[in-house]
Amino acid sequence: MLRNFAPTVVAVTGVGEGTDRVELDLVDRWPAYDVVPAGAPDGLALRTVPGRPETTVRMVLVRSDDGWRIEAARRLA
């Protein structure tokens, strides 16, 4: 489980058209976060992952019965 994983979208730089599937280009960043056991989310970290600076990402979103979900995401830069 990831503790304190909270990506921030800084900018959306491009949006493709679609009704049930949409491709976005965006810039995001991540703070540092911990990987912890799912059964002990408040326990000791198994490892700490450093934050990531602002990065351009292409993300594909698909519509589901429960709302939009990420199908794929990859760094462009």
Rank of each mutant, 00 (worst) to 15 (best):
A45D: 13
R74E: 07
A72D: 03
R75I: 03
E54Q: 10
D25F: 12
L2G: 02
V27E: 10
W68P: 12
E17F: 15
V49A: 02
G43L: 08
R74M: 06
A40N: 12
A11I: 02
I70F: 01
A32W: 13
D25W: 11
G67A: 15
R52F: 15
W68N: 10
M59V: 08
G16H: 05
G67T: 11
D25T: 15
R52V: 13
R75A: 06
P41I: 02
A73H: 00
V36T: 05
Y33K: 06
P53Q: 06
A73R: 01
E71T: 00
T19E: 13
D20R: 12
R74Y: 06
A38Q: 07
V27S: 07
V9L: 02
V22Y: 02
T56L: 13
R3Y: 09
A77L: 11
A6Q: 15
G51K: 02
G18I: 04
T13G: 04
D65W: 11
V60E: 01
A38N: 06
T8M: 07
V62E: 00
D20C: 14
M1W: 13
V10M: 04
S64F: 05
T8I: 04
V49T: 04
P7L: 04
G67P: 10
V62H: 00
D28L: 09
D66A: 09
R63F: 01
I70W: 00
A40F: 05
G18E: 03
N4P: 10
D28I: 08
T8S: 07
A11R: 04
V35K: 11
R74F: 06
P7S: 01
Y33G: 09
V10N: 06
E71L: 04
R74G: 05
E23S: 15
R58C: 00
L26S: 03
V22E: 02
L24R: 04
E54S: 07
R21A: 01
T13C: 04
R52N: 12
T55G: 10
T48M: 07
R74P: 02
G14H: 14
T13Y: 05
G39T: 13
P31Y: 09
A38F: 07
T56N: 14
R74S: 07
S64W: 06
A11D: 05
V27C: 10
A45K: 12
D34C: 14
A11W: 01
A77W: 10
W30M: 15
E71R: 02
V35R: 12
A32S: 12
P41D: 05
V57M: 04
L76E: 03
F5D: 09
W68R: 08
D65I: 14
W68A: 09
G67V: 11
A40Q: 08
A73I: 00
P31L: 12
P37T: 15
P41Q: 02
L24A: 05
S64Q: 11
